[in-house]
């Protein structure tokens, strides 16, 4: 046992020297006189724990399979493009239009993000109500709002893996092969936009998926509902605008289109969907997020502890 170990354990109880030089350390109860982290520390601890649990870290292997597989789907196009740029760099040189831009990449991964979101977000919220952790958390410095903030943080962190990660891979691949932004300023701007767009995308889906997850104690039902809701709004909005020739503003209800368009706005691209404005898209995103947050808060304010 090292001196450091001895100091830590020995502080708790009695240590005695025997004739042979061996020492026995008692593991008695020790008082803790140091600072306590408070709410911020509690929020971070729950967020980190929930994030790890959602990805199956610290859990049996079967819990890792689905998050890893669905997350991997989001990276596949980025890896393929990175490979193309690396191996065919001389061919595509000067023909950068061949490569998808950063915001266009979200078009490739829209559905895999939805499936990943449906799998990960409900697990983060529903499990606590089923396994008693919610009541235990409420007996700690956490309050309902700070608990929900921790859960939202965990979902955003988990979703950012697929909304930020692959595009960062793309940025690095382009940069290393001379197809990236020109100069440090442009590069930093692109990085900022990738982070901003990815986090906004994640925040929107976090609000929607947590709202759904707050309404049921069955994880599978929540997962299916999240996916059906997002895909369903897309189908419904497209049908209403395209087939029934109703107002194009109904596209703002499309949970596949709206975040994708918002990403374009963040990257300074013009809004390509007819009848929609950048302001309208941003407001729609804010509206969806606010509605999700309001629903979660309404549900959790009424949730009994016990």
């Amino acid at each position: 046992m090292s001196e450091a170990d001895a100091a830590v354990i020995g502080a708790g109880g009695v240590s005695e020297a025997t004739d042979g030089g061996a020492r026995i350390f008692g593991q008695g109860y020790r008082r803790y006189e140091g600072d306590r982290a408070g709410i911020a520390g509690a929020v971070w601890s729950v967020a980190r724990h929930s994030f790890r649990a959602a990805l199956g870290l610290g859990r049996p292997a079967r819990h890792k399979i689905l998050p890893v597989v669905t997350a991997a789907f989001s990276f596949v196009p980025a890896v393929v493009m990175a490979g193309l740029v690396a191996f065919l760099g001389s061919i595509v040189e000067g023909e950068e239009d061949f490569l998808p831009s950063y915001h266009e990449y979200y078009g490739f991964i829209g559905m895999s993000v939805v499936v990943y979101c449906g799998l990960v977000a409900p697990d983060i919220l529903v499990s606590d109500r089923r396994n008693g952790m919610f009541s235990l958390y409420m007996s700690t410095p956490l309050q309902r709002w700070s608990y929900l903030a921790a859960k939202a943080q965990a979902v955003i962190m988990a979703l950012a893996i697929v909304t930020v990660g692959p595009v960062l891979v793309l940025l690095l691949a382009y940069t290393l092969n001379g197809a990236g932004p020109d100069g440090l300023g442009e590069w930093m701007l692109a990085l900022g936009r990738i982070l901003g767009a990815g986090l906004a995308y994640a925040a929107l889906y976090a609000a929607v998926s947590l709202a759904v997850a707050s309404l049921t104690d069955r994880r599978a039902i929540a997962s299916v509902t999240v996916i059906v809701l997002i895909v369903g709004t897309s189908i419904a909005a497209s049908a209403l605008v395209g087939e029934a020739e109703m107002s194009a503003q109904l596209h703002l209800l499309n949970l596949l289109l709206v975040p994708y368009t918002m990403v374009g706005v963040i990257f300074g691209e013009p809004v390509s969907t007819g009848g929609l404005s950048a302001q309208g898209v941003v407001l729609a995103c804010a509206g969806w997020a606010a509605a999700g947050c309001a629903l979660i808060w309404w549900r959790y304010r009424r949730l009994e502890v016990g």
Binding site: R36, A37, S45
Partner: peptide
């Protein structure tokens, strides 16, 4: 304050050490 609820439902897949450590952290310990 430490609290042990009556309800005997705990997260089945968590190890005891992880469970206790996590709640100690949430209660403010480094």
């Amino acid at each position: 304050v430490g609290f042990a609820p009556e309800r005997n439902v705990l997260p089945d897949e968590m190890r005891a050490i992880d469970f206790v450590r996590h709640l100690a952290e949430v209660r403010g310990l480094p």
